[in-house]
Design a protein around this nucleic acid. Structure first.
Lengths: 347, 347
DNA sequence: CGGCTGGATGACAGCGCTGCCAAAGACCAC
DNA sequence: GTGGTCTTTGGCAGCGCTGTCATCCAGCCG
């Protein structure tokens, strides 16, 4: 910076003021400084400036993984907003409990980021207290935490609307497939299961434990076994509601390779509106994933710009059921079919 | 740090030495310091230490997007290695030419990261020169740049092996579908196309421009139009080689929804071994994506640890054709069928 | 028993910026 | 001409660490 100052014939203070866009610099001086900076390819050292200001101009994202469609798109949304704000994006992914423990133990984000976006994570009270104690602003993504800034969808209601779509088609035995892993991450599962149960209750249908398969871990054989289990029941379900499109697509693949027609013998409903869902004709509950990322980044930005701002701001995004070819009325109609019309009345 | 020093009854120098793992600290002192640091949840300020050392302990990744299966998995691999090395991961995604220009203009990574991983990017000579001028070590990922550290697969050879699989099944008219975008990113397309051409040449087959569709942008209607184009040719191809599994899966979806049986009337071959490829029974050329990310991170790590190290190190990963249900001999056999056996001889 | 070695620790400058305050000058009112 | 205000600029301390050098003391040799 001293070099730039010398070249422009001003003091370092003036260079600093110019480069930060402060107003109290005359246009001529500004011009000379900018020219000198360009000629020397000068870039401010964030290390030095954050040492003084206490601001790092960096936002950290904490995720349980990076290789899912959901998180890829969420982070893409975050990244777009941060780029415009000239903030840097720091990514911490913790894929198992040991790493999770290590993260909250050492908390490497501390002092290295101005805010933390927590995605798909059910923080324990201790973890939350720890972040609070260190004064790290947190935005919860894809999760509703009362009293904390969060960006989310109404998972209960969304699952209910998905379920009603299946009920309206005439399905009465509907399985629910959760994807879970061994790290205690949230991933909206619980809420969607609640929506599933509530809808059954509303419709006066029994909750059958055999139809709810939760230990379907990502990247494992679990899906095939889960589908095998459903197909070997005394009365197999006529529809499967998968917690995410990725699971739903796998289920469709397994069903078709086992000779089970979709939607002829089994309807499949997903959740997300994955990029491939359209091409694979998968009915799904769509959520605006990239918008969620963008909103979370905006929230983080507003918090670090103005720490006094209301800390309880929430952004709730709507979801919608997109009917496609993977769901249809069950055939033959289940014994207990009621007066519901055989064709969808819920678009 | 002063607080920790006081609590442990030592000087800040000793705290610094302890926390950096330097050897010249007695075990008792080390224990006391670590205890004090834990009790105070102390984390070193990277800003301050990088101001002195010139090292940021951060690695930047430059990518054209974040929402593809390939990059999600690559970055997951990178992230794992960096976490173990206690390095932070900074992500810059530039999705169009304007952002790309802005990135190389301002070069925000400068002084904020110790090395840059460039993924799926064909840098222009000017861009490369600029990085060099600023002394930023670069590792090329998924791209072979002679004389620079790079991690990649042999795209030409891999495409050739994929093509030979189709030829051995008896296909003679094979389309090639590239995914492209408008930003001049590389994405291995050119090399795979070269492999396609070379294989045709070897087999004495003509190169038909009508069968090579490159303007198939991501997230666009392009795929449907491309498939429509192929199906409306005087002699449609009997097989499609897609540049990535994501494209291949979309192609399969479009074909099936158009009533074209896969592999009955059209074989589809992908590239990547996407997580869903197995479930959708897609034949593909598998590459070890996460390993590529890991190797790239290791390379970056070794470069920042030892800047004198050989700057031309390369890691080449093998690929393999995984035959699944989306490829089969063409029916009816093409007119010009040769003495090739009708069944695969290339597993 | 003095001097020397080596391991462990402390003191202190300074990395590159920013925030604060002072100063210089332009301008105006009286 | 004097005093006051406002705009623009410069000087300088200090953010929290690390690297270097100094210091201290135990242990050992001659």
């Amino acid at each position: 910076m001293a070099d730039v100052a010398e070249r422009a014939g001003v003091s370092v203070s003036t260079v600093s003021r110019t480069l930060r866009g402060l107003s109290s610099v005359s246009p001529q001086t500004r011009g000379r400084v900018e020219k000198a900076a360009r000629e020397l390819s000068f870039a401010i050292s964030r290390s030095a400036s954050s040492l003084v200001t206490g601001k790092t101009r960096r936002i950290a994202v904490l995720t349980p993984h990076l290789d899912s469609w959901f998180l890829g798109n969420t982070i893409a949304g975050v990244s777009g907003v941060l780029r415009e704000a000239e903030l840097d994006l720091l990514v911490y992914s913790v894929t198992d409990l040991a790493e999770r423990g290590a993260f909250f133990d050492r908390l490497p984000a501390r002092r290295n980021a101005d805010a933390l976006l927590v995605t798909c994570f059910d923080l324990t009270p201790e973890e939350r207290a720890r972040l609070d104690a260190l004064g790290m602003p947190v935005v919860f993504v894809s999760q509703h935490v009362p009293g904390r800034p969060s960006v989310y969808i109404d998972d209960v209601d969304s699952a209910q609307r998905g379920m009603r779509h299946l009920l309206n088609l005439g399905h009465r035995r509907i399985a629910f497939l959760q994807s879970s892993d061994d790290t205690g991450f949230h991933w909206s599962s619980k809420e969607r299961l609640t929506g599933y149960r509530k809808t059954l209750e509303e419709a006066g249908l029994p909750y059958d434990e055999e139809l709810v398969l939760y230990p379907v871990a990502r990247h494992r054989r679990g899906i095939r076994e889960a589908v095998g289990h459903l197909l070997s029941l005394r009365t197999p379900p006529t529809a499967v509601f998968a917690e995410s499109d990725e699971v739903a697509i796998e289920v469709m693949g397994v069903l078709r390779s086992s000779g089970v027609d979709v939607p002829g013998r089994m309807s499949v409903l997903g959740f997300d509106d994955h990029h491939l869902a359209e091409w694979l004709d998968l009915t799904t509950v769509a959520q605006p994933v990239e918008d969620i990322g963008r909103a979370a980044a905006e929230l983080a930005r507003s918090i670090i710009d103005d720490p006094e701002a209301d800390p309880t701001r929430h952004v709730v995004f709507p979801t919608r059921v997109i009917p496609r070819g993977s769901t249809a009325p069950p055939t033959p109609p289940p014994a207990g079919a009621q007066e519901d019309p055989p064709h969808p009345r819920n678009p």
